[in-house]
Design a protein around this nucleic acid. Structure first.
Lengths: 219, 219
DNA sequence: GGAATTATATATCGAGCGATGCAGAAATCG
DNA sequence: CGATTTCTGCATCGCTCGATATATAATTCC
């Protein structure tokens, strides 16, 4: 439908791309994308209008369409931006943890901070990916992207738990996908609690309770 | 804004109201409300248009406005309808359970069926109340109704757990609001998993894992 | 039957939606 | 410099949104 090309401004390593000719863009594309992301994050896809976006981004609609193509493409790029800019708050320490149990623990604990905005983030409450309902709103392609993003988290946990089985930290009979889905479900539930105004301390209690479900090592 | 009165057709006990004069309504109001409920449930408030609604309900827009007042009022009534028509699938056995532990267990187990449509329900996947984002979409009053509905579930569990403390089933030192919020979070997370296509068996595994977090009676 | 009352069907309403056409401004290239 | 290229601001496109005015059909009351 759209001439998808665009200018591929998203260069891989933050480098300034080869200078194009013609009039230069008058706004900071990344800053505008950040504003759009937060708006989609807070209000969802359907309830966010182009007017809302252009006002928050401080640009006119032709500039928006020149830089991002369409509302759908902008949302897709906002999802990418969100993953790059915010997900490390939840997954950063997860990767570095020595044991799977600690990994899950910091995953849940860091989530309490990220979801309630207690980590210095200026973002809205809850997780943009978890709370997105764009797939149910009649935008199948975007919905699939969101589902994939959700599945990434599940797979990360599954992989970490599988490694724990190999390392003897978990018994081989443990249902790894089931356990992984449980922890993902807990974090998803925390997103909804956060959006309803739950405090970080309240989410900490949820996380502590969830950790009690950790399988007995039966040592 | 609107002349809110209407005809108060929702009589308390399913009785047929005193026959009004004039031309009778040509459609079944409850059946139409059921259709509207399922549409809001599946697509959300913002993404559901009046055209969608009138088509699904099989009526013209003037009939919709005569019967329900406005889109917002229709959504509010759909929430009420949803609570009356669907919530017993999740909470019915909860009330009858002998112990708090069994109550939570059947609450989660019945949720797996209700959320995946495995209970003979023809409804969409997931919970309409849990997954609603109407409050973030700029409709504060509806958002508050949804938040209240979500809080009802939390309070039910809190009350049941408190009774369990009184009955000696749980130790007095247990953080009841925290434990209640944990189980609510698990069920909310199951709603999102269900909407993403999780099977009932997968949700059963989530429920089983969650039950392992039940506090030790330390007998 | 005739008057009064109420619901429906058709055809819109103004507003806002997502998206563009166009002319001018601002840069690079020769 | 002039030619070319690209972006921006203004105005607006066609469309759909939520919501109604109007005329007609269907019922009750007398």
């Amino acid at each position: 439908m759209q001439k998808s090309g665009g200018q591929d401004q998203g260069n891989p390593a933050g480098q300034i791309a080869a200078r194009s000719r013609g009039r230069p863009r008058a706004f900071d594309r990344d800053a505008a994308l950040e504003q759009a992301t937060q708006l989609f994050w807070r209000k969802g896809y359907a309830a966010t209008s182009i007017s809302d976006l252009t006002e928050a981004m401080g640009i006119g609609s032709p500039s928006l369409y020149a830089a991002f193509g369409s509302k759908e493409e902008l949302y897709a790029e906002a999802l990418r931006h969100y993953a790059e800019r915010y997900e490390f708050r939840v997954w950063g320490n997860f990767r570095a943890a020595a044991t799977a149990r600690e990994a899950i623990m910091v995953f849940l604990r860091d989530s309490t901070a990220a979801l309630t905005g207690s980590c210095g983030s200026n973002g809205p409450l809850g997780c943009m990916v978890t709370l997105s309902a764009v797939g149910s709103e009649g935008h199948a392609e975007l919905g699939e992207r969101v589902r994939v993003a959700r599945r990434v988290g599940l797979t990360r946990i599954e992989d970490r738990l599988s490694r724990a089985v190999s390392a003897g930290e978990l018994a081989g009979k443990v249902d790894i996908p089931g356990l992984a889905r449980f922890f993902v479900a807990v974090q998803s539930g925390m997103s909804i609690l956060a959006r309803d105004g739950a405090t970080r301390a309240e989410l900490e209690a949820v996380a502590s309770n969830a950790m009690r479900a950790w399988p007995e090592t039966a040592g």
